[in-house]
Amino acid sequence: MPQDPPLTNEDVAALADYARIALTEGELDEMRAYLNEAMALLDPILSYDLSDVEPTFHPVGGVCNVARDDVVVAGLSLEEALASAGGGVGRYFRVPAIMGDGGAS
């Protein structure tokens, strides 16, 4: 199997930006080294011909159709909901300016 090209600092910066984890320049180097070392550890996966193998997304398979009845269950009070959100405003959770974030909707 051909190897994937090693990640560059630019790749890692894009990844960190996507995953919302700010990295300093030094951390960027360390992270690139780590990711390339970790990727090399995964090589055994690439050595298989898996064309006829079904994936197992859920271990201890065979269980399907697990659902619950449409019945209301008491949830959290407003105080409990907001208890850990230090920046709440009145009845709301609060975030600073979003524009430029580019969410999916």
Binding site: V72, V73, A74, G75, L76, L78, A81, L82, R91
Partner: peptide, 17 residues
Amino acid sequence: CGCRISHDDEPNTNVCP
């Protein structure tokens, strides 16, 4: 989850973990 569906309730009152 078992939270009630509502368009009109006070904010953040039909929520759970």
